[in-house]
Design a protein around this nucleic acid. Structure first.
Lengths: 349, 349
DNA sequence: CTGAAAGCGCTAACAT
DNA sequence: ATGTTAGCGCTTTCAG
């Protein structure tokens, strides 16, 4: 039972333990780090004193001396309330914990400047690696740059991009098979006879995932020889906007007979709008799975992503770099999976 | 433009900057910390060199010398993929970031031993505070203890419990109004004429939130003079188990006419089971809101929690302690809100 | 206004 | 098998 420290009392240090036992600090250090050989007797007495005083080593001090970076990895995601990123973070944390590393986390709120600040803070605290869902710079310089991370990478810091890929910096990257997934989802609808298939995307339209999924949509249409209809391509930043967009689509002179919702918020909006309008005849395939998908009537057909795998792969890449892997940057693509539950089977008329 | 560091190059230190400018390290330190008075000339030259060398202070080294704990707060949650805890974490991170603190996160997976290890790791890395969703010890010693955190608290470390409250340690705590919320949800059903209302809870039954919500359920029944029916109280650890439990309930000789689902997984299970059975006549109120709640037909009536508020309040308590607040431990209760969307209005027969 | 020396808690590099 | 000395990068203390 460790001695109760008086409130505000200084935590015991290595030298406190050493003094207590009557050995040098280095000997205590040796015992704790199982370094070199220490006689069983001293070893036991040291451990006893450590226990009794409730000594815990100061990792910061250790790292300063050893000159190594901190045994943490920083993760920057746009948000955590979204279960997609929550699951990613959970998988990263698990993978790190298995290796004795700790997760430091920040949310960029899709703001490139905030992301930079977080990166700076993380680096100042000597985070050993960085996993970043790059925020999309807004304004005229659309697209991802993130060249500012190049120096850190050059200085030997593991940097992994997740879910989106910057244009100007080659670094390890983990992505969902967005394009393939979208193509498969739209092909599913085409295979059921649909020809007027709307695309319901994120905003801004420059978002990497949105671009890729839209490309998949177009590829599927092209492969089936179905002409694109620009009026069927709409956006909504949240589920309410997506629902409104769907209402507008259904009011078109030539409305779509099927919807492809390119992200989970769009899917929620589409389901809501269809339910409100009582339109059980409009087919729907969503990108990204939802907990309620199976509980809906009809069941919601989705292109499921695997956010846990994304997180695991990102952590694995960072860990490999920490272990000294100096190979060229790698891109890992995580497959998606079509889960047919019924909503994609509906037929026009 | 900072000089490009050669790959693997040592990051520049305070003394590097000092040497570059031809002043002492202390002067550079003074400039960076805006401490004391430095002549405008040296100041400018120092800042120029800092910029040119790309110098960034080593926070670990600083903290070691200053003897202060790290400017981080550790958060331990059971999981992050669950949007409830994801939203909590997001709110905590935002509140900390606003104060220049960084969030360190770990997932306990509901394992008390894992939680302890995380606490130890966090403390070793000198985390400045701790926010913990206490894991429920399994086995014979049901209930929360967490006395092991008492010493840390006594040593001046801010400790805040979130969502659940340990029995053996008085510390700041932030809770949802579980009991009130459950009572309101069941009262809603009673008010629509239901008398056979099932309770669909978590497992294990000792879980703090489950106990509180069950107490609210009983209070509502008692207030209405409705006798309890033990066969209507069931559990399910995940949504599939909850769905199975609902199927069993509906097969009873005297089945319930309404369900109260005491958490979001139970709610998903209940919705699924009712949809599969085509039972549009069974009322349902769920505890905890769901993104799809509005998209269901009928809309899902829920007792909404406010996870962001829970996170904010927890962070506020931790920050107050960091600012030196030495008052007695406080308990903050965050209200819940009944959101009526239709599923609670269904009438038997 | 600025600097030299000492030291935070710990470990590397020598001793012995 | 153990101890001494020095020093990580920074700040405190005390001089100038």
């Amino acid at each position: 039972m460790p001695q109760r420290n008086a409130p505000g009392a200084r935590r015991p240090t290595l030298s406190d333990v050493a003094r207590e036992v009557g050995v040098s600090a280095k000997t205590v250090s040796r015992v704790l780090n199982e370094e070199g050989v220490v006689s069983p007797g001293t070893r036991a007495r040291v451990l006893e004193a450590v226990e009794r005083l409730g000594f815990r080593p100061n990792l910061m001090a250790r790292n300063v001396r050893v000159g190594s970076r901190d045994s943490t990895v920083g993760l920057i995601v746009p948000e955590l309330g979204n279960p997609f990123f929550g699951t990613v973070a959970e998988a990263v944390e698990k993978a790190l914990r298995a290796r004795g590393l700790t997760l430091v986390i920040g949310t960029s709120e899709e703001d490139a400047e905030r992301e930079r600040q977080l990166v700076r803070t993380f680096l100042d605290r000597q985070t050993g690696g960085l996993i970043v869902v790059p925020a999309e710079p807004v304004g005229p310089h659309a697209g991802l740059d993130h060249a500012y991370l190049g120096e850190e990478r050059a200085a030997g810091l593991p940097v992994v991009f997740l879910d989106r890929t910057p244009t100007a910096l080659a670094a390890d990257t983990v992505l969902s098979e967005n394009r393939d997934g979208a193509r498969a989802g739209v092909a599913h609808l085409l295979g059921r006879g649909h020809r007027r298939i709307a695309f319901l995307g994120d905003e801004p339209a420059e978002l990497y995932t949105r671009r890729e999924r839209f490309a998949g949509y177009r590829e599927a249409l092209a492969a089936a020889g179905v002409p694109e209809a620009p009026e069927l391509v709409v956006s909504g930043h949240d589920s309410a906007a997506a629902a409104a967009a769907v209402r507008a689509l259904l009011a078109l002179p030539e409305p779509p007979t099927a919807l492809f919702a390119a992200n989970n918020l769009a899917t929620v909006g589409a389901v809501t709008a269809l339910a409100r309008a009582g339109r059980q005849d409009v087919a729907l395939v969503g990108f990204d799975d939802l907990p309620m998908a199976e509980a809906l009537r009809p069941g919601l057909t989705v292109i499921a992503q695997d956010p846990a795998a994304l997180g695991r792969e990102a952590a694995a890449l960072a860990l490999a770099r920490l272990d000294g892997d100096e190979a060229e940057p790698r891109v890992v693509r995580v497959p998606t999976r079509l889960v047919a539950r019924g909503s994609g089977e509906l037929r026009p008329g």
